[in-house]
Design a binder for these strands. Structure first.
Length: 117
DNA sequence: TCGGTGGCTTGCC
DNA sequence: CGGCAAGCCACCG
């Protein structure tokens, strides 16, 4: 179809798009981890890449980047950081309890499959 | 093509 | 709960 036999650039674009789409599916009041998000997007264990991609998001992004936490619901962003403080503020705004840089993932963790689990 | 690098993850002590 | 080490995977120059 296309004149391009191979487009690795496009593939990278798709990965980002898939990541964004997956992130956009995270409902308010729920949180996911980098690894979980990466796996959902079909990136496998590229959790680090996910965090990086989120850091590259523009300030005016509509994606709920603040709903992405580290393993166990821990906030990777340090206190005193603009983004870190912003993240905690948004999480609380959504009704998520943030205690000592940690969120109860057992309580606010997003489960896309639900049921049968 | 290759090496260095991460807003991570998991184990272990 | 904390620090350390290794693993993983995709990005960048």
């Amino acid at each position: 179809m296309t004149d391009t036999p191979a487009a690795p650039e496009n593939a990278a674009q798709i990965r980002r798009t898939t990541l964004y789409l997956t992130l956009a599916q995270v409902p308010s009041g729920k949180v996911v981890t980098y690894g979980q998000l990466a796996e959902m997007a079909g990136l496998g264990r590229a959790a680090r890449w996910v965090g990086r991609a989120l850091s590259q998001l523009p300030d005016d992004t509509k994606l709920p980047w603040h709903r992405v936490l580290g393993a166990g619901g821990r906030i990777s962003l340090p206190v005193g950081s603009p983004s870190g403080d912003e993240q905690r503020a948004r999480l609380r705004t959504e009704g998520i309890s943030v205690l000592n840089n940690r969120v109860d993932i057992q309580r606010h963790g997003w489960r896309p499959v639900e049921h049968s689990g």
